[in-house]
Design a protein around this nucleic acid. Structure first.
Lengths: 234, 234
DNA sequence: TATTTTAATATGTCGTACATTTTTATTTAA
DNA sequence: TTAAATAAAAATGTACGACATATTAAAATA
């Protein structure tokens, strides 16, 4: 057997085991949000460990939003908001290149999937807003050395599209993926002006299609537009 | 002002404040994965709090995968995998209805966005596999009382589609969204057989389109197929 | 009976201590 | 002088005990 197949011995710390036990308990107890949990001392006694260790395990569930504890009263099962945990770790500097690329791809898929909603739910005001963004973008593009401003308009344009969708989940996703996207963007394209604007399909093209074209046109153009950012998905 | 606008006074616990301070420190210190962190006692001294409190705050970052600690050696910045945190809280029983619906929608958007990839990357074997799933599904549908089996085939079919995409992020998302999806499904449609199979567009239709149609056809049919599950997105 | 006081409770925070293992420093041997 | 063996220091993980504080329940009082 190849040595690369050898996995390091899992040296689970005691808190890890406690966490596992608690997870099993939570799964099996069929608890619902709002239900009370046993007290810390009870849990500690039941598992035969110190309150310190129990508290650290519980802290993990609290961090994930699975449980909530109210001072001096007790702990109870909570309803976690999955995106919150997601958002907290969306720091571009921390993510490794694989994860960055994953998030990049994810954004592209969402952006394409969003086309349907955008087309379906667009209003005159939405178009007007996007038009103003594109106007400003094109005006800025004529003057040199305005990368930061260009990036801002790029964000504004795409954020505007997500807002049209009216889908909160998408909007939140976009909000957290955007910084990651921009970070990767700068990393791989040192000259943003050239990269942002040299699109096969520009924001102006997209906007015109949104106004006068069909949803299929729009999606197709969006795909071409995004291909310029990143060619892994085509 | 409406009383509903009143938010409860935020009574931040000390650990919350410590967490905030640590977050600020991490943000400002420009640390990269692999960089070492100050020792617990140093942090405790710097903030003028006990080691217990510091440890609990650090535990939160550890839980999120932002830091890693190696016993007897020290702590360092890590590269979090955002999906891990996501997966951990994807327990349908815990999520509230709003979140459930968000996840539902998210899956639908991903499924539509995935169509492009599926069409582009499908192979003969993929088609063969999907065909076998659909065959079994249809066979089962003729006999009564097989909801669980039908659901399994439904999952197999859609999972198969994601696998074709070759996009790991999508696959992982699908894997964690599926239980949530199925849970909501059962919750809202007590008779799965009727709901699963009474599609405007069946799995068989999708498969045929995947074999002989165009990507636009496929996407369009997928949208109709999914509409039957959930009509919020159309 | 209604109100006030008291007591019990549970989490949050603190301090200390020690186990264990890695790292560093020191001592010893060749 | 260098290398090996030994000792010391260091850092996280775990445990225990204590107290603060605010809530809830119980008891006492008007």
């Amino acid at each position: 057997m190849k040595i690369s197949k050898l996995k390091p011995i899992e040296t689970l710390t005691q808190v890890d085991k406690i966490e596992q036990s608690l997870q099993d308990y939570l799964d099996s107890a069929n608890l619902q949000p709002g239900d009370a949990l046993p007290k810390e001392v009870e849990l500690a006694q039941a598992l035969g460990v110190s309150r310190t260790a129990i508290r650290e395990a519980l802290s993990r569930f609290r961090t994930l939003g699975i449980i909530e504890s109210r001072k001096n009263r007790g702990m109870l099962i909570a309803s976690p908001d999955p995106l919150v945990n997601f958002e907290r770790v969306m720091s571009p500097k921390l993510l490794n290149d694989d994860t960055l690329r994953d998030m990049f791809e994810l954004r592209l898929v969402l952006e394409v999937g969003n086309c349907e909603l955008v087309f379906k739910r667009k209003t005159a005001e939405d178009i007007e807003y996007l038009e103003s963004v594109v106007d400003k973008e094109e005006h800025t593009a004529q003057t040199p050395k305005n990368s930061a401003v260009l990036i801002k308009y790029d964000i504004d344009f795409h954020s505007g599209l997500y807002k049209i969708s009216g889908n909160d989940t998408l909007i939140r996703f976009q909000k957290m993926l955007m910084p990651v996207f921009m970070y990767s963007f700068k990393k791989f394209h040192p000259d943003p002006k050239q990269s942002i604007l040299n699109h096969e399909v520009s924001h102006r093209d997209l906007l015109n299609t949104l106004k006068k074209g069909t949803v299929d046109d729009f999606r197709s153009k969006m795909k071409k537009h995004l291909r310029n950012y990143y060619d892994k998905i085509s």
